[in-house]
């Protein structure tokens, strides 16, 4: 498959005559399950994502305060 895609990329380099030339490789995942799983937001993980977001914001605030303290100390 890697050989096929690399060859196809070289074909595009040689044959494209306009910007934004797009060629779709004739390969697909074995099934379509990834479409739903990719960046999934649903009732099953909404609370977990929100908790992760809150944790990130708490952490960023901590970093900001540390930076401000370091600046004030200089």
């Amino acid at each position: 498959m890697q050989t096929q895609i690399a060859d196809l990329a070289m074909d595009v380099l040689e044959t494209a005559v306009v910007p934004r030339t797009t060629v779709q490789a004739p390969v697909q995942w074995g099934d379509d399950g990834w479409r739903e799983r990719f960046m999934h937001v649903g009732d099953d993980n909404r609370a977990q994502l929100a908790a992760e977001g809150a944790e990130r914001q708490r952490f960023q605030q901590e970093i900001r305060e540390q930076d401000a303290k370091a600046k004030a100390g200089n």
Binding site: P19, M39, H40, V41, L49, A50, G53, A54, R56, Q57
Partner: peptide, 23 residues
């Protein structure tokens, strides 16, 4: 956009959009 909003990112990402492209 929805995935990051669910993680409390305030501003949706602004995707690059170009009217033309060099060739």
């Amino acid at each position: 956009r929805e995935f990051y909003a669910a993680q409390a990112y305030d501003q949706p990402y602004q995707w690059a959009a170009h009217d033309d492209a060099p060739f």
